[in-house]
Design a protein around this nucleic acid. Structure first.
Lengths: 149, 149
DNA sequence: TCTGATTAGGATATTATCATCCGAATAACC
DNA sequence: GGTTATTCGGATGATAATATCCTAATCAGA
């Protein structure tokens, strides 16, 4: 569901978020701490900075810091720069399938994708850090008896 | 969520399932019908045959046929040979994280994965073909007011 | 102003996924 | 038995994701 790069991004952000008072942390330190290939993480952080999710300063005692509030930073926003979640429009049944009146398989597939994206858009960095109750994830548990088929 | 190869497999199986009375269909015909690269689909079908999902006969008038009942064939079983859905055990927070008492982020990530797998295991080929009500997918809709955070 | 630490960015290598090619093996039909 | 249609399996090629390398640009501090 999440690409390797997406996971790296999340890990790094969670690590930075745990550094209170917005202290700056060099990319190499984050990488060392998390056991992520340093040269690669550098690229990922660079990208997150371009996205405005991280702030950066170069030079001695420089590094990266969170630029947005963890409680308003969704997993979707973190991960989207690195992987595409748009539902593919090709129909599972092959034939040309009117998007306005899609076949069942098509509709189901879109529902899968929407559901996955929904999770990512409802979960924030703060959620991941705080031991908050599962919230939106609860709706993903096994369906209770009356709604199962 | 689904790899390209997984989608090919599903499309092909759906196509074969629509051929009543278990008639055999050559790989090339399936590929032509669905607009999938024929030489690649051949490999996919071969694999599905090894998995016991398809039956095959070589030679003239040969081809592939479904070897299991669509209503007992889950999407998970179709797709698993081509992509791994096992939840990675690496912790999102980096540090060594006791699997028996995982960190919040870890738990949430597992929940995502379990939820995704759950969808795939609850949906059958027959579901995709029949216009059956969404069933298990309904539990993935936006949470109703009282369960949202 | 020099030096060391650090991000920025381009170029390149490595690996996995997707796709193609080719030579068999097998089965139906004449 | 020969011919044609088809699956099977191995080898190879293309493309995208992942990872590394190198050279700047920038900043803090001595």
């Amino acid at each position: 569901m999440l690409s390797q790069t997406g996971v790296y991004a999340l890990q790094a952000l969670l690590h930075l978020a745990s550094h209170r008072n917005g202290a700056q942390v060099p990319a190499a330190a984050v990488a060392r701490e998390l056991g992520i290939p340093g040269t690669y993480l550098a690229k990922v952080l660079q990208r997150l900075a371009r996205e405005g999710i991280l702030g950066s300063t170069r030079g001695a005692r420089g590094g990266y810091r969170l630029a947005v509030d963890p409680s308003s930073l969704t997993v979707a926003r973190v991960v989207t720069p690195f992987q595409d979640f748009r539902a593919p429009d090709a129909c599972l049944l092959g034939g040309p399938c009117n998007p306005l009146e899609p076949c069942t398989a098509h509709a189901r597939r879109s529902a899968w994708n929407a559901a996955a994206l929904d999770i990512l858009e409802k979960t924030t960095l703060a959620d991941l850090l705080s031991g908050a109750p599962l919230g939106s994830l609860r709706s993903l548990a096994y369906p209770t008896s009356e709604e199962s088929r």
